[in-house]
Amino acid sequence: MSIRHGLLALLERGPRYGSQLRTEFESRTGATWPLNVGQVYTTLGRLERDGMVAQDGEDPAGHALYVITDAGRSELKAWFRRPVDRTSPPRDELAIKLAMAVGAPGVDIREVIQSQRRHTIKAMQDYTRLKAQALEAVPADRHEVAWLLVLEQLIFQTEAEARWLDHCEARLIRLSLLPEPTGRPAADGPVQNPSESPAESDRPGLADARSSDASQAGK
Rank of each mutant, 00 (worst) to 15 (best):
M1R: 09
S2D: 15
I3A: 07
A9S: 15
L10Y: 05
L10V: 11
G14N: 09
R16T: 04
G18M: 00
Q20D: 11
E26H: 07
S27H: 01
G30A: 02
Q39M: 10
Y41E: 07
L47H: 00
L47S: 00
D50T: 07
G51T: 01
M52T: 06
E58D: 07
E58N: 05
D59A: 00
G62E: 00
H63E: 01
A64M: 01
A64R: 02
L65P: 05
I68T: 03
W79C: 00
R81Q: 14
V84N: 02
V84P: 07
R86C: 14
P89T: 07
P90E: 14
R91E: 09
D108Q: 06
E111Q: 13
V112I: 01
I113L: 12
Q114W: 04
R117H: 11
I121W: 03
Q125M: 11
L130A: 13
E136H: 07
A137R: 13
V138P: 07
A146D: 15
L149K: 12
L151F: 12
I155E: 05
F156H: 15
A160Q: 12
W164I: 08
W164V: 07
H167C: 14
C168R: 14
E169A: 02
R171H: 08
R171F: 11
I173W: 03
L175W: 06
L175Q: 11
D188G: 05
D188E: 11
D188F: 06
Q192W: 08
P198D: 04
E200W: 00
R203D: 13
P204K: 04
P204I: 06
L206K: 12
A209G: 05
A217Y: 14
